[in-house]
């Protein structure tokens, strides 16, 4: 009888602890997410102000900087009006912010025919496709190399895989791309060259490899060290001591814990891929945000430069926030 009562008491106590825990953690989680969201908003607002100020922070008259000293006075006046540079600074900022909220990002200057947003929208899918393809190349390969190196740590295999990863972070991407083209387009013509088949999978392969290599190498290094660290943890030794087969220890116990930080960093690097796409798109003559940005620079179209920069920065901040939220939801440790 007494034993029964004790057990009931224990059950109730445990139940209460769990309920309490759920409430406490979810409250903490909520506060964490709120803080994270606020800091993201601060970042975006700051990025908006900074992209707005670019023109003014650079010494010299913005219009002279854009058109050069020997431009016709008529052109200068037109551009000055079009860019709102004849207004006071607060008015300029107000109009810039309004152009973000009404979804136009302003008009190209000085012809005022197309909105920046329309051109960005047209260019964006190709760049996102490329960035995702880069991710698809980078992440599985990185995990494979990293885990393999960690399992064979301090052997010849490890040295070889580590060297590959080291090469990957050291080789400049704009060297790798043309080298790939030389190999698979000129020497052994199996894949399409620059500007060919850009919309199809065949044409996406080399650009994805070029864009993804640096990230792949970086993540492989991370995976290796994270995995080595995890494999030396007590609970892994326990699992091994229980007599579990090695593959089970690796896949069921070590991998999940070792990979969480790697996946987070991979997500956060999505934005870096968007920026890296500028170089990749130029090498492979692909349409996209990077190509649009370079067009804007070549035509001294400031609104395009501003818009592209802002869109990439905004997407980067948003993806980082999403990754953090997912991470918080998946990893119980972050709530504590």
């Amino acid at each position: 009888m007494a034993r029964q009562g004790l057990r009931d008491q224990l059950v109730v106590a445990w139940f209460l602890r769990i309920v309490e825990g759920v409430f406490a953690t979810s409250w903490r989680l909520r506060r964490y997410l709120l803080r994270r969201a606020v800091s993201s908003v601060v970042s975006v607002v700051g990025a908006v102000i900074l992209t707005f100020l670019f023109l003014h922070l650079i010494p010299g008259d913005p219009v002279d900087n854009l058109l050069g000293d020997d431009a016709r006075p008529q052109d200068k006046i037109e551009l000055r009006q079009c860019l709102d540079l004849d207004q006071t600074l607060p008015v300029q900022l107000g109009r810039f912010v309004r152009s973000i909220f009404d979804g136009t990002l302003g008009y190209s200057c000085p012809d005022r025919k197309t909105t920046v947003a329309a051109r960005v929208r047209k260019a964006l899918p190709s760049t996102i496709q490329l960035a995702i393809a880069g991710m698809v190349v980078a992440v599985p390969l990185a995990l494979l190399i990293g885990v393999a190196a960690a399992l064979r740590a301090h052997t010849r295999w490890d040295a070889l895989l580590t060297a590959i990863a080291l090469l990957g972070i050291s080789l400049p991407a704009m060297w790798l791309g043309p080298m790939l083209l030389n190999l698979f387009y000129i020497q052994v013509p199996v894949l399409p060259g620059p500007g060919e088949d850009t919309g199809r999978l065949r044409g996406l392969l080399l650009p994805a490899v070029m864009l993804g290599t640096h990230l792949m190498a970086m993540l492989a290094r991370m995976t290796r060290s994270s995995m080595i660290e995890t494999l030396s943890e007590d609970y892994i030794r326990t699992a091994r001591a229980k007599g579990l087969p090695t593959w089970k220890v690796v896949y069921k116990h070590a991998l999940r814990n070792a990979l969480l930080p790697v996946i987070t960093v991979a997500g956060m690097q999505f934005g870096a891929l968007l920026a890296g796409a500028v170089v990749t798109e130029k090498v492979f003559a692909r349409p996209g945000l990077g190509t649009l940005l370079l067009e804007g620079i070549a035509q001294r179209d400031y609104r395009i430069v501003q818009g592209c920069t802002l869109v990439i920065a905004g997407m980067y901040v948003a993806v980082n926030l999403i990754v953090d939220v997912v991470y918080a939801a998946v990893d119980p440790r972050i709530r504590v």
Binding site: S39, S43, D64, G271, A313
Partner: peptide, 24 residues
């Protein structure tokens, strides 16, 4: 830290491109 957050909102070489692009 907030200033750093803002600068980090521009991934990779984006900020460097934007600055180098705007000078005459």
């Amino acid at each position: 830290m907030r200033v750093i957050d803002v600068l980090l909102a521009f991934p990779g070489i984006l900020l460097n491109i934007a600055i180098a692009a705007l000078v005459p």
